[in-house]
Design a protein around this nucleic acid. Structure first.
Lengths: 135, 135
DNA sequence: CGTTTAATTAACCATGTGGTTAATTTCCCA
DNA sequence: TGGGAAATTAACCACATGGTTAATTAAACG
């Protein structure tokens, strides 16, 4: 029954966290954010350090805007962009859950936990001598 | 001369930070990481909570592995996965640069900086054929 | 041996992405 | 009133992604 999975997969907007991470997954867009952290800027200003065309920058800005990472206003024919902090805050909050994993002597926390769990061989290793669900 | 841009654009592996953010930009993969934070697991174990096929999970694991977010070993026919902390640490370090933007009374830091810069109209208004000074 | 279990590979599909050039919109101003 | 600057839209291209089903590899076991 592929109907439902297709309905679910296509045209589904990304959840906010996914949209944020996706927007951050491009060096041009990260550079744009870095520039905006120094103050608002117009599109041509933002495009200036890059070797790409204006439309390409416009597309990057759209991605950033959809992710809520920038807001845009109008000022005559300029569309100044500004950094918006909320998604960065949320992304940081998500990463914080894993802080213990990269910090200090807990770099090997996985080891520790795995050992705690005892042998528990990887997968569903229950011998299941009895007739298992055939499927 | 589109030759060079094509050479640059295509088949270029992502820089590590981009690969990490791209890998995090999917709820399934984030759920897999959350599961792995509780200890190593096999592919079928990881796939169990999801409604997708095994091959789909295998693909997600490949993305995570390429980003260095997981490591894999062999154990008979199982391929246990474990969380690897380094990329999470690096992603967090990148986000830290922006902490001031989402913290406390600095939520409006952009405002502050923009004001500091004075009028400095948005774009490269360096032409300035005549004293514009709008607004 | 053959069967079962674990997992990957292959082939396919629809859509998203990151770039291009060319055309178009929108606004200021002489 | 019309030119020019800022920016977006349109149409296109080459992959990448996230999913599917079917086939295949690899190891354990009876």
């Amino acid at each position: 029954m592929w109907l439902i999975s297709h309905l679910v997969n296509y045209a589904m907007p990304l959840d906010p966290l996914s949209a944020t991470f996706a927007a951050l997954a491009d060096p041009t867009r990260r550079a744009i954010l870095a520039r905006l952290s120094k103050g608002e800027a117009s599109v041509t200003e933002l495009a200036q350090p890059f070797e790409m065309s204006l439309p390409a920058v416009t597309k990057h800005l759209k991605v950033l805007e959809r992710a809520g990472l920038i807001t845009r206003s109008r000022e005559a024919q300029w569309r100044p962009c500004r950094l918006a902090p909320k998604p960065l805050k949320d992304a940081n909050a998500w990463l914080e859950h894993y802080r213990e994993f990269w910090e200090g002597s807990f770099d090997r926390l996985e080891d520790y936990l795995a050992d705690l769990q005892g042998q528990k061989r990887p997968a569903r290793a229950r011998k299941a001598p009895t007739p298992k669900k055939p499927k």
